[in-house]
Amino acid sequence: MTTQTEAEIFDRGYRRYDGERSGVGTAMRSVWLNSIQRALGLRRKFRFKIVPIVTILLAYIPALAFLGIAVILPSELVGETVDYAGYYGLISISTLLLTAFVGPELLSTDRRTGMFGLYMASPLTRTHYLTAKASALATVLFLVTLMPLLFLLLGYTFVGLGPEGFSNTMILLGRIIAGGLILSSFMTLLGMAAATLTNRQAFASAGIVMTLIASSVLANVMFEVAEVDDAVLLADLGNLPNDAIQRLFKTSEIIDVPSWQSLGALGGVLALLALIVIWGYQRMEVTK
C-alpha cells in the first residue's frame, strides 16, 4: 500500500547535461574510428566492402605465397636472403587502389553530404578534423603497407628463416615500421590533397592515379629523351617513397642521386601536399 510520504513527482522537464565530459582527444578518436569503419565498409552494405577487401587481400597474397614456399620447400630458401624491401614493389597496386578509394571517401564525401558542417559545428577545429582523418587514412593504409611485411617477418621467423638474433630482428622490425610509415604518410597526404581539391569522389580518385602516372611518364621521358641529370627522376612521385624505403633497407636505390637529394625531395613533396590540404581547408566555406 502506498502512503503519502512515499509519493514522488518526477521532474520530466528539460535538464542540461551535467554529466562527465571528455576532452577533444575522445572526439578525435570518434572521428578516427568512424572514418576507419567507413573506409573499410564496416556496418555498411556489402558493395562498400568489396574494394577494401580485394585491395587488402592483394597485398597479402605474395606474403602467403612466400610463406607457403617456406613451409613446403624450406630447403629451397636456406641461405637465401629474404627481400623485404622488394615487397614494397609488390604492394604498390594495392596501396594505390586503396588510397584512390579511401582518401576521397573520407574527405570528399563529408563535404558533399554536409557531414563536414556537422563536424565543424561541434567543438572540433579543422586541424583536429584533418588530423583525425589523416590518422584514419594512414591506419587503413597500414593494412597494406605495414601488416603484410610484419606478417611475413613473423612467418619467416616462425619457420626459422627470420633474421639472426634479437638485435637483427629489432633492426628489421624498425625498418619495416619506418617503411610503412613513409609509404603511408606519402599516400595519405596525396589522397587527402586530391580529395581537398574536389567534392567529386571519382574525380579525386582519378586525380590520385593520374598524378602518379603522369609524373612517372614525364620524369622518365625527360630522363630518356632530354638526357638530363638523374635528379629529374625525383619528379616521379610514385618512386620517391620507394626510393627512400630502399635506402632505409640499404638495398640498391631506385634513383641514382645522393640520399639527401632523394629524402629532401620526398620531404618537399610531403610538405607541399600537406600545404594543399591545410590551405584548402582553411579557406573552405561550409555551405551545407
Partner: peptide
Amino acid sequence: SQEEHLFQEQRALDFVTLAGQLNHLSD
C-alpha cells in the same frame, strides 16, 4: 541542418552517439 544525406548508411543510434562523442560526452 537542412542536409538530408548525413551518414545515411549508419543506424540512428550510431549517428547520434557520434554527435555526442564529438561534443565530448562521456556516456
